[in-house]
Computed example of a mutant assay.
Amino acid sequence: MDRTFEELVAEGAAVPTDGWDFSWFAGRATEERPEWGYARSAGERLARARAALDLQTGGGEVLDFALRQAAPARPTLLAATEGWPPNVARATALLAPHGAVVVAAPDTAPLPFADASFDLVLSRHPVTPVWPEIARVLRPGGTYFAQHVGPASAFELVEHFLGPQPEAVRGGRDPEREREGAEAAGLEVEELRTARLRMEFYDIAAVVHFLRKVIWMVPGFTVEAYEERLRTLHEEVTAGGPFVAHSTRHLFVARKPAPETIA
């Protein structure tokens, strides 16, 4: 028997949103993954690093996976930052067995670490990369390795709820502007790859949970405020199949130049 709109919306509204574990979406939504395999590649880099920092680690799930890929090797010094208190607690519990220290720090605040502390800085989907701080905490010769959200990501879904967005909003998170920011901070961009990836939502519960979890997509989202648009989308999915959107991602690899040596 098909479940009603009310039942599905209530389920999506009840699922906890802490952490970055997306396993609840299995069978309800899908998203293609970039070909570069960020977490696996991060694990390879962690296996060679002496001191590593993961910025905006969420619940620590991605770093935990990468460290398991790196095992038994791992950095001697391992730290992570996170700005949302429920995720700080979750990440601390998950990453402590790896010897990681999780520091509560706002996403755009100065990093609470000394200059040149890390030879590897990681980040998966940072809200905003603060390039001067990333450059400051990297050791000369160190690497920033990250996967960023690109411009107009999942905007088919965003614009269903908010209507057409201005070009200034659609063009945010532009990878070339991020390249300029990294270079202005003194980093050398070694690799910048982009991908556009298909997303499918199979029921309205998945949409509700996604918008509650990824809160910057539709700021201030609540079921009550968007009930009419949710109902319209539910009817479209019921009649015509999954709602399709496209995420955008870019792989960002930058290095802090080492000082030139004099022969």
Score class of each variant (00 low, 15 high):
37 G>D: 15
27 G>P: 08
122 L>K: 09
201 F>W: 08
158 V>H: 03
206 A>V: 01
116 A>T: 02
214 V>E: 12
176 E>K: 08
220 G>I: 03
192 L>I: 07
79 A>R: 14
75 P>I: 08
189 V>S: 05
250 H>W: 13
14 A>P: 06
186 G>N: 10
5 F>E: 02
227 E>M: 05
196 R>L: 06
51 A>L: 01
116 A>C: 08
178 E>W: 06
177 R>N: 13
254 A>T: 06
43 G>L: 04
99 G>C: 07
253 V>E: 04
83 G>N: 14
159 E>I: 10
17 T>R: 05
199 M>L: 13
124 R>E: 07
191 E>M: 03
128 T>R: 13
21 D>A: 04
186 G>M: 02
230 L>C: 11
241 G>A: 07
179 R>Y: 09
117 S>M: 10
60 G>P: 11
105 A>Q: 15
204 I>T: 04
195 A>S: 14
54 D>M: 08
63 L>V: 05
26 A>P: 11
47 A>N: 06
201 F>I: 05
171 G>V: 13
219 P>C: 11
221 F>Y: 02
42 A>N: 09
3 R>F: 06
8 L>V: 02
72 P>S: 04
193 R>Y: 00
71 A>V: 08
92 T>C: 05
244 V>L: 14
35 E>D: 15
149 V>D: 10
214 V>S: 11
179 R>T: 01
189 V>Y: 07
133 E>T: 07
175 P>F: 11
105 A>L: 12
84 W>L: 04
255 R>H: 05
106 P>N: 00
88 V>M: 03
27 G>E: 12
66 A>L: 13
236 E>I: 03
155 F>M: 09
125 H>K: 12
233 L>N: 04
130 V>L: 01
152 A>P: 02
183 E>C: 10
3 R>H: 10
262 I>H: 02
233 L>K: 09
12 G>M: 00
12 G>R: 06
85 P>Q: 05
50 R>T: 04
197 L>Q: 01
18 D>M: 12
198 R>P: 01
127 V>D: 08
133 E>V: 11
101 V>Q: 15
184 A>Y: 00
77 L>N: 08
179 R>K: 15
58 G>A: 00
228 E>A: 15
3 R>E: 10
103 V>M: 14
261 T>I: 09
235 E>N: 13
247 S>W: 13
122 L>E: 12
123 S>A: 15
195 A>V: 10
135 A>L: 01
142 G>W: 14
152 A>L: 00
256 K>I: 05
106 P>K: 06
166 P>N: 07
262 I>A: 14
253 V>R: 11
189 V>N: 09
108 T>L: 15
136 R>P: 00
65 F>K: 00
188 E>L: 14
56 Q>D: 09
205 A>D: 06
171 G>T: 14
146 A>Q: 01
220 G>C: 07
181 G>L: 07
126 P>S: 11
9 V>T: 06
62 V>G: 00
15 V>D: 09
86 P>C: 06
226 Y>D: 07
163 G>I: 11
192 L>W: 04
171 G>K: 03
184 A>K: 15
254 A>D: 12
187 L>W: 03
50 R>Q: 13
29 A>W: 11
17 T>Y: 01
166 P>H: 07
